[in-house]
């Protein structure tokens, strides 16, 4: 289990995190939310060991981590097949079908739409069969249909294959509906809870400095600005 133990991290003496402790629950989807510039991506960099914390320790970092950013750079004109098989020889047909990539295998990735491209990158990270999948605002540039396809495919495969997901999302409604747990970062601190327990108008309004309203039914939550 990925474990943060009293971790502090600062850039140029500006503190990003102060003394945070948290455990990421294995085999579940956790969403990381919080205002812009608060250090969500920095937390990812700490996990993949691009950055080292100034104090505290991060333990239980799995061997096999995959990372998907909101925009992923490709420096050669690869086809979908070439990208997915860059490290292993076999294609995962279940992933291909869920992501509607079967017919696109021999298409060059540059020619795909932004939405298709992001599904290809999801395919790429899933082909690594990660123990921990980090997703950094994966749906930011996608239209509603692709957001749905992306998140549905991710959830279906996660439930089936039981890898651990930590995902940064800006859309609070999506964050609540597609996750088991929420990590909320604000003012250098981390608040953690089960997603349905974290549906707290006051907490969210304070975090995002905007009056928010939560509308719920039995299964779903909708989080919108009050005014």
């Amino acid at each position: 289990m990925l474990n943060f133990d009293h971790v502090s991290y600062a850039v140029n003496e500006k503190s990003i995190f102060t003394d945070i402790s948290a455990s990421l629950i294995d085999h579940e989807i956790t969403c990381l939310i919080g205002p812009n510039g608060i250090g969500k991506s920095t937390l990812f960099k700490l996990i993949i060991e691009s950055y080292q914390p100034q104090s505290g320790t991060i333990t239980g970092i799995p061997d096999n981590i995959a990372l998907l950013a909101q925009q992923n750079e490709l420096f050669e004109p690869l086809t979908v097949r070439e990208l997915l098989t860059i490290q292993r020889d076999t294609l995962d047909t279940e992933v291909l079908e869920l992501l509607h990539l079967t017919d696109l295998l021999d298409t060059q990735i540059d020619y795909l739409s932004g939405g298709q491209r992001q599904l290809v990158w999801l395919g790429y990270v899933l082909h690594q069969e990660p123990d921990l999948l980090l997703l950094d605002e994966p749906t930011t540039y996608l239209d509603l249909r692709y957001q749905q396809t992306f998140l549905n495919a991710l959830t279906v495969l996660q439930r089936k294959r039981q890898f651990t997901v930590l995902m940064i999302l800006h859309d609070l409604t999506q964050a609540y509906n597609y996750s088991d747990n929420i990590w909320l970062i604000n003012q250098q601190q981390l608040t953690i809870g089960k997603s349905h327990d974290m549906l707290d108008e006051t907490l969210l309004s304070k975090t995002f400095q905007l009056p928010l309203k939560i509308i719920t039914d039995d299964e779903h939550a909708l989080i919108i600005p009050k005014n």
Binding site: S50, A66, N72, F75, I86
Partner: peptide, 14 residues
Amino acid sequence: LKYFALSSEQLRLL
């Protein structure tokens, strides 16, 4: 050499 199609960050993870 095919790996240089990916970013340094992805290569580190691989």
